[in-house]
Amino acid sequence: MIATKIIGRGVLAAAVLALSSATLVPSPAPQAAQTIAVNDTAVLEQRLPRKLSDFGFFQNGVQQVPAANVVPYRLNIPLYSDGAEKLRFMYLPAGLQAIGGGEGLLELPVGAALIKTFAFGEGDDRQLIETRVLLRRADGWLALPYKWNDEQTDARLAIAGARVDLTTPAGEDISYRVPNKNQCKECHGVDGEVVPIGPKARNLSADWLEDLAGAGKLNAVPDGHDQLPLWENRETADVTATARGYLDVNCAHCHRPGATASNSGLDLRWEQDDPHALGVNKRPVAAGRGSGGHLFDIVPGDADSSIMTFRMRSDEAGVAMPELGKTTIDQDGADIVTRWIEEMQ
């Protein structure tokens, strides 16, 4: 496979090489012989491109083989999305650079795009469900959801969202939710602006950043990069770092000042150090039945009495957290947060 969710150094190096040499990733696929360029007009100007293929991000959509200047990446800790396999790509137009900004988000130039495909099923049974794109336009970021057709030939703009019946890797039959355009903004909004969430330097690998910088696509590897533990190492990694990383990635896009859940006063960002802002002995504000009858977001040493884990372990609308982007309970995520709370003094 050319593009998989695990982007090792070798694959990335190949992709970056492809960027610099204007050739494509070596591939057994026949499409590899053909150069597909991203349609910059679609990224920059076309109001609401109706089809994912309008952008030309992929030389092979169903195999998720990226076009020139489209680089795959992974995050150390990912956002949970019902166990979907997620394929992430960053498009940087030829000659343009990302700028490192400390441990936070890479600053991407106008004309850049972030692309994330959600898939379920293994091997030949893999079905692409949706691809979400974030387009860096002159007037800011635009977030759009595209839903793949059954034939897997293309994805269409699903501006009002959609529901898809599928089975998760954990074997649960669910009605999977493709978010609508507004819901994109509910998670991606800070102070009224749409912003990316994922590609923060602290959650990106040193290798990937170095390769990107080496290829001239990043001005410099930013300080504070690669801090979050790898999610697959969560059993052995530092519990606090893993749990805080998980909360940063899965919760803090809403639970931070200026974002959707700002009025809760709960701030779950990685850089927040005030225990009370993180929920320790913090009373709920507008939780309603989401409190589960508990008095505090986090009771140190007692996850069973903590609202945070109660809501993470619910799959009921109106109680479950996060409110959007997932239907099932992230058992692994809830477990690491539970361990963190249990070990808290």
């Binding site: 529901r163 009605s175 939710r177 507004n182 819901q183 903004k185 509910e186 909004g189 609308a317 109106g318 409110e323 959007l324 239907t327």
Partner: peptide
């Protein structure tokens, strides 16, 4: 209703 924290959200 299967998701979201409210019926109608205005921002």
């Amino acid at each position: 209703q299967q998701d979201a924290g409210e019926g109608l959200l205005v921002t």
